[in-house]
Design a protein around this nucleic acid. Sequence first.
DNA 1: CTGTTAGCGCCTTCAC
DNA 2: GTGAAGGCGCTAACAG
Lengths: 341, 341
Amino acid sequence: MASKSTDKRATIRDVATAAGVSIGTVSRVLNGKSVSNRVLGSVNSAIKDLSYTPNAAAQSMRTKSTRAIGLVVNDISNPLFSGIAKGLDEVLSRNHYSLLIANTDNDPQKEQVIIKSLTQRRVDGLVIAVSNELDDNIKSILQKVEFPVVLLDRELDIQADSVCDDHASGMKKALQYLFDLGHEDIALITGNDSVRPCRERALGYRDAYRKLGKPLNKNWIRQGQMNSLYGYEEAVRLLEGGKRPTAIIAGGNLILSGVLRAIRQFDLSIPEDLSLISCDEVDLAALMNPPITVIIRDIQLIGQLAADQILRRIDDGADSSPSRQSIPTELVVRESCTRLR
Amino acid sequence: MASKSTDKRATIRDVATAAGVSIGTVSRVLNGKSVSNRVLGSVNSAIKDLSYTPNAAAQSMRTKSTRAIGLVVNDISNPLFSGIAKGLDEVLSRNHYSLLIANTDNDPQKEQVIIKSLTQRRVDGLVIAVSNELDDNIKSILQKVEFPVVLLDRELDIQADSVCDDHASGMKKALQYLFDLGHEDIALITGNDSVRPCRERALGYRDAYRKLGKPLNKNWIRQGQMNSLYGYEEAVRLLEGGKRPTAIIAGGNLILSGVLRAIRQFDLSIPEDLSLISCDEVDLAALMNPPITVIIRDIQLIGQLAADQILRRIDDGADSSPSRQSIPTELVVRESCTRLR
DNA sequence: CTGTTAGCGCCTTCAC
DNA sequence: GTGAAGGCGCTAACAG
C-alpha cells in the first residue's frame, strides 16, 4: 500500500553508483549543467530505474530556497479567495513553485501562528490578506519577516508590495448610475474600515454624494461584519425602518446573500420595490432573477499579479521600493435597478 | 524591507551559544524533552532574543517527515473543492500540518507533474480527486507512491483509503420525490462515467426507474462534461427538442448554472414550466427565486474526514486494509418542483 | 568535463 | 541531565 515503506528511497548516491559516476555529476545533470552525452544517458536511465526523485528538503537546505509560497486568507471557501488562489497557482505552478494555503478564520491569533509556521517552513514568499489592518501585531511581524510579502488589497504602512482594487471608483460609477435613475436614498452595507475593500467602498460612496452635491444620509451607511448574517440583519433593519432606502448596495459577495435573504423575507420584488447592486461577480448575481447589477473586478487577475509580483521580488531582492498595483473595477449593468418614478 | 536579508538567520547553534549550552540541549527543549528548569529558561530566552525559528527543511531531513499534506483537485475555485480544502485545513492545522494545494485543470499531464512535485517535496500524505478514474497512468503512479493517499470520491482499485458520498441514494430520493409528483420524463445532466460522483448519480437514476417499474428513456440521460457550458448546451437541446422533459436534474453545481442560463433563455418559469433539482448546496440554489430543491452532502465534512483518515494512516502505517468511508446525501425539498397535472 | 569534499541545520545515539 | 559527534541528501566550490 502506498505508505511508509521500510525500504528507503533512492538517494543521489544510489543513482551515482548505479550510473558509475560521482554524485557531483548526478547533481549536475539534475540541475541541467553541461555533461557529456554518454554520462547524461546513463545517469538518466539510472534515475528512471531507481525512480529517483531529489529530496526537496535537502535541496532547500543547500540552496536556501523552498520554491514554496504561502497564501494566507480568512476563508479559502470564499469564492473571492479561492479565485485568487486559482490565479496564484496558475502562475506559480508554471514557475515550479508550490502553494501553501492557510485559513485564519478572521482570528488574529491564528493568523500569527500561521505566519510563524510559514516562517519555519522558510517559504520564499507570502501572499496575505491580513484580517485586520489595525492589528499592530501582524504589522510588526510582517515587517520583520525574512521573505517578500505581497499584500492582497490591504494597506499596512510597511515595506511590502501590494495588489489592490480600485473599489472606490467602481462604487462611484454605481452611485452615478443610481443617481441617474433618480435614486437618492441609497443604502450601503459592507464591512468595517479595518479592511481596505470596505473602507474604499464607503469612501467612494461618500465621495460620490459629495461630488454630486447630494445630501448624504449617514444612516444609509452600514458598516459591520463582512459576512452573510450581517448583510441579512442590516438589510432587515433597513427594510423595516420607517423610511426605506430605494436602493441597496451590497458591499461584498457574502453580504449579498444575506441581503437577498432579507429581501425574500419581506417579499420584495426587484427592481420594482427596491433596486439592488452588488460587488464582485458570482454565479448568484449573474443568474438571479432578475440578474443583478454588479461592480466587478478580475479576481483571478489579482492572484496572477500577486504571483508575478512575488516572483519578481524574489528575483530582484528587496532593494527597489514597494510596488502598488491597482486593478480597476467596472460596473456591469443588468436588471436589478429601475428608474425611480 | 521584508525580504532576503544578507544577515543569516539564527540557527540552533547560535541559540546554544547564547544560552551557554550545547546544541543537543537546545534540540531537547525544542522537542519538549525533559531538561533542568534553569537550562529551560535560558534556552527559551535565547530563542526569543534571537527570534529563532527551527528550519523545517533541516528538521524533515532528519525526521523524514515534512508535516505537509498535498491536495490535488481540478479547480480550487470550484466551491466544492474549496469547501473540502477548508475542511481539510481545519483539522490539519489543528494537528500542525500544512496544506499544499495544486490544480490539475482536468489535465492528466499536469496531474502527473503535480504528483511528481509533491513526491519530491516528500509530503506526508496526499488527498486527491483524480480527474479521470480510467487513466491508468495516474493509477499506477498512485499505487507506487511512498506516502498514504486518500481518494476524494473516487474509486481506483488501488490500496488507498477513500472518502465517498452516497450520490446514488440521494438521486433515488430525488426521483422518488419527482415520481410522487407525477413526473416521468425526468432528464439528468451530469458528467461522464470517468468520475465516481457522475457515475453514481447516473446509476441511482437508472436504479430508481427500474425499482419503480417506470419506463426508462435513455434519451433523458445526458452525460458529458462537468461544467457550466455542457449544462447549458444539453439543457438547450432538451428544451428545444420535440418532447420536453417535465423535470431536469442538474447533476453538479457547475451544471446548474448552465441549466439556469438555458432556462432563462427559453423564458421558462420554475416550477410551472419545468421542475428542477440540483446537486450540492450553493448560494445560487438556496437564494434563487424560487429556491431550488437540492441533493446535499456535507462538503466540509468530506475534507475533515479525509484529513482524519490521512492522519490516521500516517500514524498507523499501511498495514490495515483500506478504509472506505461513505457520506450520506439528503434531499432538501424547496420550491423548484411542482405536481404534474 | 568530472570527482572530491565541505557543509546547510537539525536530531539522535552514545558516553559521561 | 548534558555534551560531542555523526549523518540525513544535496549543492557548490575546488582540483584535476
